[in-house]
Simulated assay, not measured.
Amino acid sequence: MIWRSEQWSIAADGEDKRRLAHNLFMSMEDKFTSNGFRHYGQGKWYPGEPLPRWQYAVYWRQDGVALWKDKSLLADINAPSSYTEEDSKRFTDAFAQKLKIPKECVVTGYEDVLYHLWQEGTYR
């Protein structure tokens, strides 16, 4: 039974938990916003957890002017994806070229998990 799995008691994330949370998020966006822009970002990082939690947010204008018009261009975290690191590199290179950013300024990003765990542990 999924309700007895760690995702519902002690784990920050889980396959069912993320899917259900995203579906709730989408329903709330449809009900409470108009032409909003979705943002998926880093949420709280609790001590002892290897990675931070997700934070979902929607931003919209009260006057109804659309911030985002074509929702078909947004990814669905419930749908499988076949994108690779090479796809990401090609996109980043093309995007940088369009913005006229020199190639040497494009740097692969990564998150140093051990550093952030150490940093979290030094706060009192």
Score class of each variant (00 low, 15 high):
3 W>M: 09
4 R>L: 09
4 R>S: 13
6 E>L: 12
7 Q>G: 05
7 Q>Y: 01
10 I>Y: 08
10 I>P: 01
11 A>I: 02
11 A>E: 09
11 A>S: 13
12 A>V: 10
12 A>Y: 06
13 D>Y: 09
14 G>A: 03
15 E>F: 06
16 D>A: 11
16 D>S: 04
17 K>S: 13
17 K>Q: 10
17 K>N: 06
18 R>V: 15
19 R>M: 07
19 R>E: 11
19 R>Q: 09
20 L>S: 03
20 L>T: 04
21 A>P: 02
22 H>C: 07
22 H>L: 10
23 N>F: 03
24 L>T: 13
25 F>P: 04
25 F>M: 11
27 S>T: 09
27 S>F: 02
28 M>C: 09
29 E>H: 06
30 D>K: 13
30 D>S: 14
31 K>C: 07
31 K>Q: 10
32 F>E: 15
32 F>P: 02
32 F>V: 12
35 N>W: 01
36 G>W: 00
37 F>G: 08
38 R>A: 08
41 G>E: 02
44 K>V: 10
44 K>E: 09
44 K>A: 07
44 K>C: 02
45 W>L: 00
45 W>A: 01
45 W>Q: 00
45 W>I: 00
46 Y>S: 07
47 P>G: 02
47 P>K: 07
48 G>F: 03
48 G>N: 02
48 G>D: 06
48 G>P: 07
49 E>C: 05
49 E>K: 09
49 E>D: 13
50 P>C: 00
51 L>I: 07
51 L>V: 10
51 L>K: 05
51 L>A: 08
51 L>C: 05
52 P>I: 01
54 W>A: 08
55 Q>T: 04
55 Q>I: 06
58 V>D: 07
58 V>L: 02
58 V>G: 06
59 Y>G: 11
59 Y>Q: 05
59 Y>A: 10
59 Y>S: 08
60 W>H: 12
60 W>G: 05
61 R>A: 04
61 R>I: 03
61 R>L: 10
62 Q>R: 11
62 Q>N: 11
63 D>W: 01
64 G>L: 07
65 V>N: 06
67 L>A: 01
67 L>R: 01
68 W>P: 03
68 W>E: 15
68 W>Y: 13
68 W>D: 14
68 W>I: 06
69 K>Y: 03
69 K>A: 14
69 K>E: 15
70 D>F: 03
72 S>C: 05
73 L>H: 09
73 L>R: 15
75 A>C: 12
75 A>F: 13
77 I>V: 11
77 I>C: 02
80 P>A: 04
80 P>K: 03
81 S>Y: 04
81 S>G: 15
82 S>M: 00
83 Y>A: 13
84 T>K: 11
84 T>C: 08
84 T>V: 04
86 E>H: 08
87 D>S: 15
87 D>R: 12
87 D>C: 13
87 D>K: 08
88 S>Q: 11
88 S>P: 00
88 S>A: 13
88 S>R: 15
92 T>H: 15
93 D>P: 01
93 D>K: 15
94 A>W: 06
94 A>K: 14
96 A>L: 04
97 Q>G: 05
97 Q>W: 02
99 L>Y: 06
100 K>E: 11
100 K>S: 14
101 I>D: 01
102 P>G: 03
102 P>Y: 00
102 P>M: 00
102 P>W: 01
104 E>V: 07
104 E>T: 08
106 V>M: 00
106 V>S: 00
107 V>F: 10
107 V>M: 11
109 G>D: 06
109 G>P: 02
